[in-house]
Design a protein around this nucleic acid. Structure first.
Length: 298
DNA sequence: GGAGTTGTTCCGCC
DNA sequence: AGGCGGAACAACTC
Protein backbone atom coordinates (compact mmCIF):
# COMPACT_ATOMS: atom_id res chain seq x y z
CA UNK A 1 0.00 0.00 0.00
CA UNK A 2 2.01 2.92 -1.17
CA UNK A 3 1.10 5.87 1.04
CA UNK A 4 2.68 9.29 1.20
CA UNK A 5 6.16 8.21 2.41
CA UNK A 6 6.34 5.49 -0.23
CA UNK A 7 5.31 7.78 -3.11
CA UNK A 8 7.66 10.49 -1.82
CA UNK A 9 10.52 7.96 -1.77
CA UNK A 10 9.73 6.96 -5.35
CA UNK A 11 9.63 10.61 -6.44
CA UNK A 12 13.03 11.27 -4.85
CA UNK A 13 14.54 8.24 -6.58
CA UNK A 14 13.05 9.19 -9.92
CA UNK A 15 13.95 12.87 -9.93
CA UNK A 16 17.72 12.79 -10.65
CA UNK A 17 17.28 9.94 -13.12
CA UNK A 18 14.52 11.29 -15.34
CA UNK A 19 14.32 15.06 -15.03
CA UNK A 20 15.55 16.76 -18.18
CA UNK A 21 15.25 13.54 -20.22
CA UNK A 22 13.08 13.13 -23.30
CA UNK A 23 10.50 10.38 -23.71
CA UNK A 24 11.33 8.34 -26.80
CA UNK A 25 8.70 5.60 -26.67
CA UNK A 26 5.73 4.37 -24.66
CA UNK A 27 4.52 0.77 -24.57
CA UNK A 28 0.95 0.21 -23.40
CA UNK A 29 0.56 -3.30 -22.00
CA UNK A 30 -2.74 -2.82 -20.17
CA UNK A 31 -5.30 -0.48 -21.66
CA UNK A 32 -7.30 0.15 -18.51
CA UNK A 33 -4.20 1.43 -16.70
CA UNK A 34 -3.86 4.26 -19.22
CA UNK A 35 -6.86 6.43 -18.44
CA UNK A 36 -6.52 8.80 -21.35
CA UNK A 37 -6.78 8.63 -25.11
CA UNK A 38 -3.61 6.74 -26.01
CA UNK A 39 -3.86 8.09 -29.56
CA UNK A 40 -2.48 11.30 -28.03
CA UNK A 41 0.78 9.61 -27.04
CA UNK A 42 2.65 10.44 -30.24
CA UNK A 43 1.75 14.09 -30.14
CA UNK A 44 1.89 14.88 -26.43
CA UNK A 45 4.37 12.38 -24.98
CA UNK A 46 6.91 11.36 -27.58
CA UNK A 47 9.92 13.71 -27.87
CA UNK A 48 8.70 15.66 -24.84
CA UNK A 49 11.05 16.48 -22.02
CA UNK A 50 10.23 15.52 -18.42
CA UNK A 51 10.69 18.95 -16.89
CA UNK A 52 10.03 17.97 -13.26
CA UNK A 53 8.80 15.22 -10.96
CA UNK A 54 6.55 16.05 -8.03
CA UNK A 55 4.33 14.33 -5.47
CA UNK A 56 0.91 15.53 -4.33
CA UNK A 57 -0.86 13.33 -1.76
CA UNK A 58 -0.31 9.76 -3.04
CA UNK A 59 -0.12 10.91 -6.67
CA UNK A 60 3.16 11.16 -8.58
CA UNK A 61 3.28 13.95 -11.15
CA UNK A 62 5.61 14.16 -14.14
CA UNK A 63 5.42 17.56 -15.78
CA UNK A 64 6.27 17.60 -19.48
CA UNK A 65 7.60 20.27 -21.81
CA UNK A 66 4.38 19.91 -23.85
CA UNK A 67 2.62 21.56 -20.87
CA UNK A 68 0.94 18.27 -20.13
CA UNK A 69 1.40 16.26 -16.95
CA UNK A 70 1.51 12.51 -16.46
CA UNK A 71 -0.25 11.55 -13.23
CA UNK A 72 0.39 8.15 -11.60
CA UNK A 73 -1.62 6.57 -8.80
CA UNK A 74 -0.28 3.29 -7.42
CA UNK A 75 -3.36 2.37 -5.36
CA UNK A 76 -2.49 -0.88 -3.53
CA UNK A 77 0.06 -2.76 -5.57
CA UNK A 78 1.54 -0.26 -8.02
CA UNK A 79 5.27 0.19 -8.58
CA UNK A 80 7.27 2.70 -10.59
CA UNK A 81 10.74 1.32 -11.24
CA UNK A 82 13.48 3.03 -13.19
CA UNK A 83 16.17 1.03 -14.97
CA UNK A 84 19.15 3.02 -16.16
CA UNK A 85 21.71 1.79 -18.67
CA UNK A 86 24.73 0.58 -16.69
CA UNK A 87 27.04 3.16 -18.23
CA UNK A 88 24.83 6.07 -17.20
CA UNK A 89 23.76 5.23 -13.71
CA UNK A 90 23.21 8.17 -11.44
CA UNK A 91 25.74 8.20 -8.64
CA UNK A 92 23.05 7.91 -6.04
CA UNK A 93 23.59 4.24 -5.34
CA UNK A 94 21.89 1.91 -7.75
CA UNK A 95 21.80 -1.67 -6.52
CA UNK A 96 24.83 -3.67 -7.61
CA UNK A 97 24.46 -5.73 -10.74
CA UNK A 98 24.29 -9.13 -9.08
CA UNK A 99 21.25 -8.14 -7.04
CA UNK A 100 19.71 -5.65 -9.43
CA UNK A 101 15.92 -6.15 -9.20
CA UNK A 102 15.41 -4.48 -12.57
CA UNK A 103 17.04 -7.34 -14.47
CA UNK A 104 13.77 -9.25 -14.25
CA UNK A 105 11.70 -6.50 -15.86
CA UNK A 106 9.30 -6.37 -17.52
CA UNK A 107 7.32 -9.02 -15.66
CA UNK A 108 3.69 -10.23 -15.64
CA UNK A 109 2.60 -7.19 -13.60
CA UNK A 110 4.11 -4.62 -15.98
CA UNK A 111 1.34 -2.41 -17.42
CA UNK A 112 3.39 0.21 -19.22
CA UNK A 113 6.97 1.02 -20.20
CA UNK A 114 8.43 4.47 -20.90
CA UNK A 115 11.82 4.62 -22.61
CA UNK A 116 13.90 7.82 -22.34
CA UNK A 117 16.51 9.32 -24.67
CA UNK A 118 19.48 7.84 -22.78
CA UNK A 119 18.00 4.34 -22.74
CA UNK A 120 16.55 4.62 -19.24
CA UNK A 121 13.31 2.69 -18.87
CA UNK A 122 10.49 3.45 -16.46
CA UNK A 123 8.28 0.45 -15.66
CA UNK A 124 4.78 0.88 -14.31
CA UNK A 125 3.90 -2.39 -12.58
CA UNK A 126 0.59 -3.18 -10.90
CA UNK A 127 -0.46 -6.64 -9.91
CA UNK A 128 -4.07 -5.73 -9.24
CA UNK A 129 -4.69 -3.16 -11.97
CA UNK A 130 -6.27 -0.61 -9.62
CA UNK A 131 -3.54 1.93 -10.28
CA UNK A 132 -3.84 4.40 -13.11
CA UNK A 133 -1.93 6.77 -15.35
CA UNK A 134 -3.61 9.94 -16.59
CA UNK A 135 -2.41 12.62 -18.97
CA UNK A 136 -3.84 16.11 -18.46
CA UNK A 137 -2.84 19.65 -19.36
CA UNK A 138 -0.56 20.86 -16.56
CA UNK A 139 -2.88 23.81 -15.94
CA UNK A 140 -5.71 21.36 -15.22
CA UNK A 141 -3.97 19.12 -12.67
CA UNK A 142 -5.62 21.13 -9.92
CA UNK A 143 -9.08 20.47 -11.27
CA UNK A 144 -8.61 16.71 -11.44
CA UNK A 145 -11.36 15.30 -9.23
CA UNK A 146 -9.04 13.63 -6.79
CA UNK A 147 -6.48 16.44 -6.59
CA UNK A 148 -9.23 19.03 -6.19
CA UNK A 149 -10.72 17.21 -3.22
CA UNK A 150 -7.54 16.32 -1.38
CA UNK A 151 -6.55 18.15 1.81
CA UNK A 152 -3.29 19.89 2.77
CA UNK A 153 0.13 18.25 2.81
CA UNK A 154 1.23 17.33 6.35
CA UNK A 155 4.23 19.69 6.17
CA UNK A 156 2.45 22.67 4.65
CA UNK A 157 1.45 25.85 6.42
CA UNK A 158 -2.22 25.04 5.75
CA UNK A 159 -1.99 21.99 7.98
CA UNK A 160 -2.09 23.62 11.41
CA UNK A 161 -3.12 22.20 14.77
CA UNK A 162 -6.11 24.54 14.73
CA UNK A 163 -7.17 23.32 11.27
CA UNK A 164 -6.93 19.69 12.38
CA UNK A 165 -8.97 20.38 15.52
CA UNK A 166 -11.65 22.18 13.50
CA UNK A 167 -11.89 19.22 11.13
CA UNK A 168 -11.97 16.49 13.76
CA UNK A 169 -14.29 17.97 16.33
CA UNK A 170 -17.35 17.79 14.07
CA UNK A 171 -16.79 14.24 12.91
CA UNK A 172 -18.60 11.43 14.65
CA UNK A 173 -16.81 8.62 12.81
CA UNK A 174 -13.82 6.81 14.36
CA UNK A 175 -10.65 8.91 14.39
CA UNK A 176 -9.00 6.28 12.21
CA UNK A 177 -11.59 6.94 9.48
CA UNK A 178 -10.85 10.67 9.74
CA UNK A 179 -7.12 10.05 9.28
CA UNK A 180 -7.86 7.91 6.21
CA UNK A 181 -10.08 10.69 4.80
CA UNK A 182 -7.87 12.28 2.14
CA UNK A 183 -9.78 15.57 2.34
CA UNK A 184 -8.61 16.14 5.93
CA UNK A 185 -4.90 15.60 5.36
CA UNK A 186 -3.20 14.17 2.28
CA UNK A 187 -1.45 10.86 2.06
CA UNK A 188 -2.27 8.77 5.15
CA UNK A 189 -3.29 5.15 4.54
CA UNK A 190 -3.71 2.10 6.72
CA UNK A 191 -0.07 1.81 7.83
CA UNK A 192 0.52 5.38 8.99
CA UNK A 193 -2.98 5.75 10.46
CA UNK A 194 -2.25 2.91 12.91
CA UNK A 195 1.25 4.21 13.58
CA UNK A 196 0.02 7.75 14.21
CA UNK A 197 -2.64 6.69 16.70
CA UNK A 198 -0.25 4.51 18.68
CA UNK A 199 2.27 7.32 18.92
CA UNK A 200 -0.50 9.69 20.01
CA UNK A 201 -1.87 7.10 22.48
CA UNK A 202 -5.41 7.33 21.13
CA UNK A 203 -7.59 4.31 20.38
CA UNK A 204 -8.45 4.05 16.66
CA UNK A 205 -12.17 3.54 17.35
CA UNK A 206 -12.55 6.72 19.41
CA UNK A 207 -15.19 8.91 17.84
CA UNK A 208 -13.40 11.98 16.59
CA UNK A 209 -15.90 14.35 18.19
CA UNK A 210 -15.09 12.96 21.65
CA UNK A 211 -11.39 13.82 21.44
CA UNK A 212 -10.09 16.55 23.70
CA UNK A 213 -8.12 19.45 22.27
CA UNK A 214 -5.02 17.90 23.84
CA UNK A 215 -5.62 14.53 22.21
CA UNK A 216 -6.25 16.19 18.86
CA UNK A 217 -2.97 18.09 19.22
CA UNK A 218 -1.13 14.88 20.07
CA UNK A 219 -2.51 13.22 16.92
CA UNK A 220 -1.59 16.27 14.87
CA UNK A 221 2.03 16.09 16.06
CA UNK A 222 2.09 12.31 15.60
CA UNK A 223 0.97 12.62 11.96
CA UNK A 224 3.94 14.85 11.23
CA UNK A 225 6.41 12.69 13.07
CA UNK A 226 5.24 9.36 11.64
CA UNK A 227 5.13 10.56 8.02
CA UNK A 228 8.53 12.23 8.38
CA UNK A 229 9.90 9.03 9.89
CA UNK A 230 8.39 6.97 7.08
CA UNK A 231 10.13 9.12 4.48
CA UNK A 232 13.42 9.02 6.38
CA UNK A 233 13.36 5.21 6.29
CA UNK A 234 12.32 4.89 2.68
CA UNK A 235 8.75 3.74 3.31
CA UNK A 236 7.26 0.42 4.40
CA UNK A 237 7.58 -2.86 2.48
CA UNK A 238 5.81 -6.09 3.32
CA UNK A 239 4.31 -7.30 0.04
CA UNK A 240 4.57 -5.19 -3.08
CA UNK A 241 6.14 -1.88 -2.29
CA UNK A 242 9.57 -1.06 -3.71
CA UNK A 243 11.13 2.32 -4.45
CA UNK A 244 12.13 3.66 -7.86
CA UNK A 245 15.26 1.48 -7.80
CA UNK A 246 13.26 -1.65 -7.08
CA UNK A 247 14.46 -1.98 -3.48
CA UNK A 248 12.44 -2.23 -0.27
CA UNK A 249 11.82 0.37 2.40
CA UNK A 250 13.02 0.00 6.01
CA UNK A 251 10.13 1.41 8.03
CA UNK A 252 8.41 -1.91 8.85
CA UNK A 253 11.16 -3.02 11.22
CA UNK A 254 10.64 0.15 13.25
CA UNK A 255 6.85 -0.01 13.11
CA UNK A 256 5.12 0.58 16.43
CA UNK A 257 2.01 -1.56 15.77
CA UNK A 258 1.52 -2.15 12.05
CA UNK A 259 1.75 -5.88 11.19
CA UNK A 260 2.84 -6.59 14.78
CA UNK A 261 -0.20 -8.56 15.97
CA UNK A 262 0.77 -10.76 18.92
CA UNK A 263 4.16 -9.05 19.32
CA UNK A 264 4.93 -6.84 22.29
CA UNK A 265 4.33 -3.12 22.44
CA UNK A 266 7.69 -1.37 22.43
CA UNK A 267 6.40 1.13 25.03
CA UNK A 268 4.69 -1.12 27.60
CA UNK A 269 5.28 -4.77 26.58
CA UNK A 270 1.55 -5.50 26.21
CA UNK A 271 0.52 -7.69 23.28
CA UNK A 272 -0.46 -5.82 20.13
CA UNK A 273 -4.01 -6.56 19.00
CA UNK A 274 -5.38 -6.66 15.48
CA UNK A 275 -9.02 -5.80 14.97
CA UNK A 276 -11.26 -4.04 12.50
CA UNK A 277 -12.03 -0.31 12.54
CA UNK A 278 -13.48 1.80 9.73
CA UNK A 279 -13.66 -1.38 7.66
CA UNK A 280 -9.89 -1.84 7.79
CA UNK A 281 -7.46 -4.15 9.52
CA UNK A 282 -6.33 -2.14 12.55
CA UNK A 283 -3.45 -2.67 14.98
CA UNK A 284 -3.22 -1.12 18.42
CA UNK A 285 -1.86 -1.56 21.93
CA UNK A 286 -4.67 -2.21 24.44
CA UNK A 287 -2.68 -0.59 27.25
CA UNK A 288 -1.28 2.52 25.55
CA UNK A 289 -4.50 3.12 23.63
CA UNK A 290 -7.46 2.78 25.98
CA UNK A 291 -10.67 1.48 24.38
CA UNK A 292 -13.60 3.87 24.34
CA UNK A 293 -16.52 2.94 26.58
CA UNK A 294 -18.85 0.37 25.07
CA UNK A 295 -16.52 -0.47 22.22
CA UNK A 296 -16.35 -4.15 21.41
CA UNK A 297 -13.44 -5.64 19.57
CA UNK A 298 -14.55 -7.54 16.47
C1' DG B 1 -11.35 -22.50 -2.11
C1' DG B 2 -13.59 -18.82 0.43
C1' DA B 3 -12.01 -15.11 3.00
C1' DG B 4 -8.90 -11.45 3.55
C1' DT B 5 -6.20 -7.74 1.72
C1' DT B 6 -6.93 -1.86 0.70
C1' DG B 7 -7.31 3.39 -2.01
C1' DT B 8 -10.75 5.52 -3.99
C1' DT B 9 -15.40 6.07 -5.90
C1' DC B 10 -20.07 5.30 -5.77
C1' DC B 11 -24.48 4.76 -3.68
C1' DG B 12 -28.22 4.66 -0.47
C1' DC B 13 -29.55 6.47 3.80
C1' DC B 14 -30.11 9.70 7.22
C1' DA C 1 -25.92 19.52 2.14
C1' DG C 2 -23.02 16.48 3.34
C1' DG C 3 -21.43 12.81 6.58
C1' DC C 4 -21.55 7.99 7.25
C1' DG C 5 -21.08 3.04 6.32
C1' DG C 6 -20.83 -0.40 3.16
C1' DA C 7 -20.27 -2.19 -1.67
C1' DA C 8 -17.56 -2.41 -5.67
C1' DC C 9 -13.36 -2.88 -8.10
C1' DA C 10 -9.12 -6.71 -8.99
C1' DA C 11 -6.06 -10.46 -8.30
C1' DC C 12 -3.18 -12.50 -5.43
C1' DT C 13 -2.10 -15.01 -0.76
C1' DC C 14 -3.31 -18.08 2.83
Amino acid sequence: MPELPEVETIARGLKPRVEGRKIKSVVVLENRTFQFDTDAITEILIEQKISSVERRAKVLLMHLSSDFTLMFHLKMTGQIIVDEPKSQRFAGGHPTNSMDPTTKLPDSSTRGIFTLDNGTKIYFNDQRKFGWIKLVPTSEVGTDRFIASVGPEFDSKDFSAQYFWDKTKKRISPIKAVLLDQSVVAGIGNIYADETLHLAKVHPARKASTLSNTESARIYEAIKQVLTDGITHGGTSFTNYVNALGTKGDYLERARVFRREGLLCKECQAEIIKTRVAGRGTHYCPVCQISPKGWKQS
